[in-house]
Amino acid sequence: MFAPPAAGSPGPSAPPAGMFDSMPGYEGTLAGGGGGFLPPPMPAYPVPQPEPGPEQPHWNIPSINEDTAREAFVLFASSKCCYSSAPAKDGVITGMDAFNTYRYRLETFTESRLTEWSHEPYNGQPVDAFSQPPPGPWDIPAQAPSFFMDGKQTMKVPYTSSMKPCHVCLGMGRKPCKDCAGAGNKVCWVCNGSGYRHGDDRCHHCNGRGRDNCNHCHGQGSTQCPTCRGKQQLLVYINLTVKWTNNIDNYVVEQLSGLQVDNLSKVSGKELFRDSQYMVYPVVGFPDPAVVQAAQRLVNEHQGKYSQTSRILQQRQTIELIPVTKVTYSWKGNSHIYFVYGNEFKVSADNYPATCCCSVM
C-alpha cells in the first residue's frame, strides 16, 4: 500500500520557486520569473559606410523569345492533371510584354539567449553551485553556424547545479497509482465486488475477495516517479538556450502587369547588387527611388528592432532584377494571357481555357 499525496492531485510540473537559492548574476533573468530573452551587452557599432549601387549597363534582362514562352506554357499545362495541353501547344502568341521588376532583400542574422531553470534525475552528476560565481549569459562561448543559417544550442550554465528533493514525489521516488488510487487493488470486474457470481458460487476470478490486484502497479499501490525516475533527488541547474535566426524582409517594386506579387516569392532573379557586412548602410545611387526608400526603411527597422533583444552578427542586402513577361495568345477565336516569370520560367495562368472537372475516388 502507498498513501502519501492523493492520487488525483496532478502535482507541480516544475520545482517551486522557493526551492532555489538566488543565483548570483541571474537574479530576475530566468524565464518564468519575469525574465526571458536577455538583451545583449551594448556593442560599439562601427559606422556603416555607403556602398554604391549597381552600374547601369547590367540592369537589363533580355526578353524571352516565343519558343521559350511556349515551352514553359506546355510544361505548365502538362503538370496539371485537369488541363488539356491543346491551348498551350496550338494557341497563337499575339503579343509579349516585359514587366521586369526589382526585389530588394535585407537579411539580419541575430543571436539571442534565453535562460531558464531545468532539472534531471540525480545520478551522481557534479554539484557545483556557489563554488564560484557563474559566468554571465553572454559570456558563455557558443559555436555559431555559418552566417544566415538558423541554429540552436542548449547548454548547462557552469556553477549553477545543485541537488534538491524531487518536487513531484516529495523525495519518495514513487507516486500513488492513478488506476487504483494508491490502494493496490480494484473492485473485481467479474463479480462487481460481491465475491460471488451466481448465488453461493464463489468468484473464481478474485477467489471470493471481491477485489483484484491492480495490473498497472502490480498490487504495490504506487509507480516509479517519472520526474526523478525513482532517484528521489533532482539535479537542478540553469539552462542556456542560444538561438541563431536569419530575419528576412523583402520589398518588390510593383510591376503593373497584373501578376500577383506573391508569385514572385517563389522564384529567383538576376542579382544586381550584394552587400554583406556587420551593419549595412542603406543602398544609395539606385535609379528606382522605391528601392532606395525601401532599403532606408528596412535597414532602420532591422537595426532598431533586433538590437533590443538579440545581438546582430551580420547583415546582407541584395537587389535582384526579376524577369516578368506577359504573353497574349489566341485560341479558338478568343484572346487569353499568361505570365512567364523568374529565372525558373514559372508560369501563371489563372483562366486557362481548357480544363475539366475531375475527382479522386
Rank of each mutant, 00 (worst) to 15 (best):
V253A: 13
A129I: 14
I322E: 02
S22F: 04
P57M: 04
P5N: 08
G53V: 10
P353G: 02
Q260M: 10
S78Q: 15
L272D: 09
A6H: 12
T227N: 12
I64N: 00
F2I: 10
F99W: 09
K332V: 04
M42A: 15
R297S: 05
H167I: 10
L272I: 06
N343A: 06
P16V: 08
Y159F: 15
P158I: 04
H198Q: 09
P24Y: 05
Y104F: 13
L106Q: 00
A294Y: 01
Y278H: 15
P135E: 08
T94N: 04
S79C: 05
S118R: 13
P57C: 02
H336A: 02
P40L: 05
G199R: 02
A3I: 15
T328C: 00
W331D: 03
S222Y: 11
R202A: 08
A77E: 03
Y329E: 00
N351R: 08
R105S: 14
K266P: 00
H204D: 05
N185F: 07
V360Q: 11
V292C: 09
V283C: 08
P15Y: 02
G18M: 14
P135T: 09
C82A: 07
R103F: 03
T101S: 11
M149A: 10
V47A: 13
S265D: 13
F339P: 02
L298K: 11
Q296M: 11
D288I: 05
A294I: 02
